[in-house]
Amino acid sequence: MAQIKQLNHSVGRHCILDVYQINDNWLQDAVAIEELLRQAAQAAQAHILTSHFHTFGGNGGVTGVLLLAESHISIHTWPEHHYAAIDIFMCGQLLTEAAVAKLQKSLPDAQMQIRWLAREYLPKV
């Protein structure tokens, strides 16, 4: 059996944020959410191609995505749990940490669990 060299090559970084204790009103406000995610993308020096956000009726939350030239930023909110799931995936040499810092600064009362993943491929051997 041939041995595979573990020479992974990074194509980007994926940040997964679990955000707790957020104000219910913000979690239902697609306009405010989109604006904050746009600011996060700008902080990372990303190029926004388009966006789409959907508000669920009643006391429902918001789901949305910013499509970036460098990948995406997405969110899904659960106001009833004071919770949002945010993904930031950016390729290349963008300032992903700056996007996360913008979210932390703009949601100062929120608690965040932040996980980082390297997105890599194995080259053909």
Rank of each mutant, 00 (worst) to 15 (best):
residue 89 F to L: 14
residue 99 A to F: 10
residue 118 A to P: 04
residue 61 G to A: 05
residue 65 V to P: 00
residue 115 R to V: 15
residue 105 K to L: 14
residue 1 M to S: 12
residue 124 K to S: 15
residue 76 H to Y: 10
residue 62 V to N: 02
residue 69 A to L: 08
residue 42 Q to N: 15
residue 68 L to F: 10
residue 80 E to H: 12
residue 14 H to K: 01
residue 83 Y to P: 03
residue 58 G to W: 05
residue 52 H to I: 10
residue 21 Q to D: 15
residue 72 H to Y: 11
residue 105 K to N: 14
residue 82 H to S: 13
residue 40 A to Y: 09
residue 81 H to K: 13
residue 49 L to G: 02
residue 45 Q to D: 14
residue 47 H to W: 05
residue 31 V to S: 11
residue 52 H to E: 13
residue 124 K to A: 15
residue 116 W to E: 14
residue 65 V to Y: 00
residue 69 A to Y: 08
residue 10 S to R: 05
residue 94 L to M: 07
residue 121 Y to C: 13
residue 60 G to C: 06
residue 34 E to Q: 15
residue 5 K to P: 00
residue 14 H to V: 04
residue 8 N to S: 03
residue 113 Q to Y: 13
residue 101 A to L: 12
residue 22 I to G: 02
residue 29 D to H: 05
residue 95 L to H: 13
residue 78 W to F: 14
residue 43 A to D: 10
residue 64 G to I: 12
residue 118 A to C: 10
residue 106 S to N: 11
residue 101 A to H: 08
residue 41 A to G: 12
residue 3 Q to K: 11
residue 65 V to I: 14
residue 51 S to R: 01
residue 121 Y to R: 11
residue 32 A to W: 03
residue 30 A to S: 15
residue 76 H to V: 11
residue 7 L to K: 08
residue 74 S to D: 08
residue 32 A to D: 09
residue 88 I to K: 01
residue 74 S to I: 02
residue 82 H to D: 09
residue 33 I to M: 10
residue 2 A to G: 04
residue 63 T to F: 01
residue 19 V to L: 06
residue 43 A to P: 08
residue 2 A to M: 04
residue 73 I to K: 00
residue 76 H to G: 07
residue 25 N to L: 07
residue 104 Q to H: 08
residue 115 R to Y: 10
residue 9 H to K: 09
residue 113 Q to K: 14
residue 108 P to Q: 09
residue 11 V to T: 10
residue 78 W to P: 00
residue 79 P to Q: 04
residue 53 F to K: 02
residue 5 K to Y: 02
residue 57 G to M: 08
residue 108 P to E: 10
residue 24 D to K: 07
residue 44 A to P: 08
residue 107 L to E: 10
residue 12 G to P: 03
residue 26 W to C: 01
residue 56 F to K: 05
residue 100 V to P: 00
residue 10 S to K: 05
residue 60 G to Q: 06
residue 98 A to Q: 14
residue 104 Q to P: 03
residue 6 Q to A: 12
residue 73 I to D: 01
residue 18 D to E: 13
residue 77 T to Q: 05
residue 17 L to G: 03
residue 96 T to L: 10
residue 95 L to A: 15
residue 85 A to M: 04
residue 46 A to Y: 07
residue 88 I to V: 13
residue 37 L to S: 04
residue 82 H to F: 08
residue 113 Q to C: 11
residue 72 H to L: 11
residue 1 M to G: 14
residue 108 P to K: 09
residue 111 Q to E: 15
residue 125 V to C: 09
residue 60 G to Y: 07
residue 16 I to L: 06
residue 88 I to E: 02
residue 34 E to M: 08
residue 24 D to C: 03
residue 33 I to K: 01
residue 107 L to V: 11
residue 112 M to R: 07
residue 63 T to Q: 04
residue 84 A to T: 05
residue 96 T to M: 03
residue 63 T to V: 15
residue 21 Q to Y: 07
